[in-house]
């Protein structure tokens, strides 16, 4: 079964074509990394898959359904959730409330104004269990905007997975982190993506080769290779285009 299928996807901003015909199939349960030099269109590709931008050509399916004309929230409801390259949380709400907001839709509360959240035991327990998993229990009542950078990144991963999506897109989840923070984040990502489809953009090759089952290399909006990490490491075209000869 295919989780995400891209077929000749194209995207132009004005006259500039950023994504130039990407075809990619990501089977269910795969941990897949997208790498490529700056400006290759990795984040743009994420924005197309998650519906942040409309595509200019080609087609995308998520869990077998075409995402053409779907709004981001509708794609989310197909079971796809994402994080952002620049941390995107709810800064003026508590850490606990951030997670709870991530849970609300999937738990069926929708736009209810007749449930009192304080009385929803199951919801509170689910949010607290997730906080525990993220190691943020001690920060429960702090405003999310006051967390440290690494904690905010962890919280964002928490919001992303809270709704129980089976496809998770992470955009540079370890960007800007120290070594120890990165190790912690990798463990966390491995833990939360268990049994799910993971698609991530990442610059840190240690993270990529440590986590991914398959790696796709994107250069100037085109896929130049998509293979197992070991094969990517040995691929001459990739080395030339991206990794450079002295990096690995």
């Amino acid at each position: 079964m295919t989780a995400i299928a891209l077929n000749d996807v194209r995207k132009s901003f004005g006259r500039t074509e950023i994504i130039r015909g990407v075809t990619l199939n990501i089977p269910k349960g795969e941990r897949h990394a997208i790498i490529g030099p700056n400006g290759a269109g990795k984040t743009t590709l994420f924005n197309l898959i998650s519906g942040r931008f409309p595509i200019s050509g080609g087609s995308i399916t998520v869990n077998g359904q075409s995402t053409a004309d779907l709004a981001p929230q509708e794609i989310n409801r197909l079971g796809l959730s994402r994080s952002f390259q620049i941390t995107s949380i709810f800064p003026r709400m508590s850490v606990f409330e951030n997670i709870r907001c991530g849970l609300l839709w999937s738990q069926g509360y929708r736009y209810s104004f007749w449930h009192l959240l304080g009385r929803q035991k199951g919801l509170t327990e689910a949010a607290e269990a997730l906080l525990e998993k993220l190691n943020l229990t001690a920060r429960r009542n702090l405003l999310a905007g006051l967390l440290s950078y690494a904690e905010q990144r962890a919280l964002e991963i928490g919001i992303t997975i809270a709704g129980g999506a089976d496809i998770i897109l992470l955009d540079e989840p370890t960007a800007g982190m120290s070594h120890s923070e990165t190790d912690y984040a990798v463990d966390l990502i491995r833990k939360v993506s268990e049994g799910k489809t993971l698609l991530m953009v990442e610059h840190d090759m240690g993270v990529v080769f440590g986590l991914a089952d398959r790696v796709t290399v994107l250069v100037y909006g085109e896929v130049i290779a998509s293979d197992a990490p070991a094969a990517i490491r040995g691929n001459a075209a990739v080395r030339e285009a991206y990794l450079g000869t002295d990096q690995h």
Partner: peptide, 10 residues
């Protein structure tokens, strides 16, 4: 706080 994030939680 962040309308886009709200979209991506459904």
């Amino acid at each position: 706080d962040n309308f886009e994030r709200a979209q991506f939680v459904g």
